[in-house]
Design a protein around this nucleic acid. Structure first.
Lengths: 201, 201
DNA sequence: GACCTGACTGGCCGACCGGTCAATAGACAG
DNA sequence: CTGTCTATTGACCGGTCGGCCAGTCAGGTC
């Protein structure tokens, strides 16, 4: 078999580089990562990184692309599964979003670095996700399930921002007096958020 | 007069360096800033930066200290002015926090960089602010002004996180379909948040 | 076998990084 | 004036950065 421990396996090499690069970029951001360190960490030579990715910048783009694709497909498939708008489904969606971020901490940090650097490569696809989410909210508003006096996009924004910021800063915020676990924060956020977006009766 | 255009003014020089450094660090983060660029931008020599601040790292700390002090004193004085807990005051507090961030965009970015780098120098003072805020919420809960089934710290966290993330990502999020201005987001957030934290009647 | 493609290596490069240092110059005390 | 202190300068340093290049080597094709 040709796939059994070949002395050369460019695809696996690419993957090894990407994985090591993601780990370092997540931890240190683009500027602070040294190609020499990355090469050592991936077990390849610096030249090989250039051979496969062209430059440090292009490797950074490749890492971000891969992470954003994971994010985009996860959210999109979640949205496509969504059925009739009701509050239980909104709760489930927020929980799913929260858990995705919890299970992909690298994605959160990568986006944070990318955004601070002014990267807006992904705003179009992101807008697609938000647009679909807002449309879902709009339908729920029309059916009287959610209060209609708020901008649907802002409903999405509020929970996306709260969840994102929680995972961006939780190592710091969990030192706050009285602050609890992921689950405890999520529960209280949901209590406030869901009460806030449903009509008073 | 000795203060009229002296050929040497170390304090002003320090201030010029600090200001230029803050601008560059806010924009690019610690690693990406080059001392040579900073020197050019501040109109001084590289050596002078070392003379006044010792090293790039210490200058970075000085810039963060100064920004955090602005943040801390602003929030603390706001908390001290706070009177009897009621919903109108909570609204005013959220608005004040939001407007502080809006008027100090550099502070938001500086904190974001610092946090990604794992800096937790400021967690103690930050905890003091949050503790005071949470205590205010606890009093409001005891008086029945706010719902008592949520952790007071999480009430603070939710609005702090939503406001912070808004200004961290607004250049990106304002490209979302249907997304509006600062004021529009704040108004919708307040609508949801205040409805969510007050007891149903 | 000869041949080609491309994965892969080690050595090297110019640029530039943060930082140092000896020398200079302005402010001020006496 | 002289001496002292220090803000300020420009030349300079060792180290390391991202990137390049000539060449080697494995695998596939004919």
């Amino acid at each position: 078999m040709s796939t059994l421990s070949p002395t050369r396996d460019p695809e696996q090499t690419r993957a090894r580089i990407l994985e090591a690069a993601e780990a370092l970029f997540v931890e240190q951001g683009f500027s602070a990562v040294r190609l020499s360190e990355l090469a050592r960490s991936a077990g390849v030579t610096k030249s090989l990184i250039h051979h496969h990715f062209g430059s440090k910048e292009k490797l950074w783009e490749a890492v971000k692309d891969r992470a954003f694709e994971r994010y985009f497909t996860a959210q999109m498939s979640m949205l496509e599964e969504a059925g009739e708008p009701d509050v239980a489904l909104l709760r489930a969606s927020v929980e799913a979003y929260f858990h995705f971020l919890r299970d992909n901490p690298g994605v959160v940090r990568l986006f944070a670095w990318a955004h601070l650097e002014g990267d807006d490569h992904y705003s179009e696809l992101d807008a697609e996700l938000v647009g679909a989410g807002a449309e879902w909210v709009r339908q729920a508003q029309r059916r009287g399930v959610l209060r209609a006096d708020v901008n649907p996009t802002n409903v999405i924004a509020v929970f996306v921002m709260a969840c994102t910021q929680w995972f961006e800063t939780k190592s710091h915020c969990q030192q706050w007096p009285g602050m609890g676990s992921d689950a405890a924060f999520l529960e209280d956020f949901l209590t406030i958020f869901l009460e806030g977006v449903t009509p008073r009766g």
